Simulated scan of single mutants.
Amino acid sequence: MSENPSTRHPRELAAAADPAWVDAFVVELRLLGVPGDEIGDHLVVLDTHLRESGESVEEAFGDPREYAGSLAPSGGTAAPVDRSTVVLAVLALVGVVLVPAALGALLDGTRVTVTLGGVLVAVLLGTAVAALVAPGAPLLALLVRRRWMAFLVTPVLVAVGAALVLLLPQVLVRVPAPVVGVAGLVAVLAGSVLLGRAPADLVTAPGERAPGAEPDGVGRLLGVSVLPVCALVACVPVLMMRLLG
């Protein structure tokens, strides 16, 4: 019986290669949409070649990103984002925005106030999400390949969002807090169900397990809990402001 692939790390399939090289290679293949079982095949072939030749992975295969691009069916271009990912991104955005907004209004005993600045912030966040899940996911690929840019983009988005809220406080509409809260919770629940039912595309060695297998209990639990945890984290500043204010 083969080892449970959920306990395996891709580095184990290419133990003869430099771990950093393997990590970069696997990430690039993921961005290019290569399935987990095919990634496992490539790693085993790579490992076998290195053991037989005695070469280093850089000598034998060169740059990990370029080599991954040469193996990808897409020809080195980022893979298209599937519809379920887009739906999940929208649900996550709606839930994480609406739940804390409703909580704040409930604690204050008021309605949720929708301002011009708030609407523009929602548009800003929606644009950011759309850029992440755009065809080919160029922004996602850029942030993964140039991780330092994520540390630059995030504070810029926060600063712009805060400025919009402060500079454009005009009230457009006031919505009952329970209505907003229910809408946010429905979005979180729907997203959690979608995540929990998502098949696990694990990196596996040849013959270990077919791709697209259903996630195990732990994987399903982690998937279901991601959005509720994010919504709770988004509620922390709201609670802190009420406690400190």
Rank of each mutant, 00 (worst) to 15 (best):
V229C: 01
A141W: 14
A150W: 15
L195E: 12
V22Y: 10
L185K: 12
A200Y: 13
V81H: 05
L157F: 13
V171P: 08
L32Q: 15
D216A: 00
E214N: 04
Y67A: 03
W148C: 00
V224R: 12
M1I: 09
F61T: 04
L98A: 15
M149R: 13
V121H: 11
G212T: 06
R197Q: 12
A183G: 07
L202W: 15
P199S: 00
F151A: 14
H9Y: 08
P237Q: 01
V123C: 13
R8Q: 15
A213W: 14
L93M: 15
L142P: 05
R197T: 13
V34A: 03
A187H: 11
V175D: 01
E66H: 10
R242W: 12
A15K: 14
A72E: 05
V203M: 04
V94G: 01
A210M: 07
L232K: 08
A20D: 15
D37C: 03
A128D: 09
D18M: 04
F61M: 05
A213Y: 12
D108F: 01
A200W: 15
G219P: 11
V26W: 12
R51I: 04
D23V: 08
P237R: 01
G184R: 06
V165D: 07
V114H: 10
A78T: 13
V57S: 03
V153A: 12
V173C: 01
V171T: 13
E38Y: 04
P73I: 00
A78P: 15
G196T: 11
S225I: 02
V34L: 10
V133S: 03
P155R: 00
D18S: 02
R209Q: 14
D108Y: 04
A234Q: 02
A134I: 09
L189C: 08
R209E: 14
L140I: 00
E28G: 05
G69Q: 07
P176S: 00
S192A: 03
D18Y: 05
P138M: 00
A159M: 06
V27N: 11
V188Y: 08
V144T: 11
P64C: 01
L31R: 15
A210N: 10
R51H: 06
D47H: 05
A200T: 10
A24S: 14
R8H: 07
D216G: 13
V129H: 09
G161S: 05
V153L: 12
V238R: 09
V160C: 01
L167A: 14
G118M: 03
R220D: 02
V236P: 05
D108N: 06
G104S: 09
V26G: 07
T113L: 04
R11E: 13
P19V: 00
L140C: 01
L91Y: 11
R146S: 04
V57T: 10
L13F: 14
G36N: 11
P5Y: 04
A128S: 13
L106D: 08
R197M: 04
A198I: 02
P176V: 01
V121A: 01
V175N: 02
W148P: 02
A131Q: 11
T115Y: 08
P5V: 00
L71D: 05
Y67F: 14
V114A: 09
D37W: 11
H42W: 09
E3G: 10
A234N: 10
L31A: 06
L172A: 03
A190K: 13
D216T: 07
A17C: 10
T204S: 11
A213N: 10
L116K: 08
A79E: 03
R209M: 09
V129P: 10
A141P: 07
G95F: 04
G161V: 01
R242M: 00
V193T: 09
G191K: 08
A141D: 12
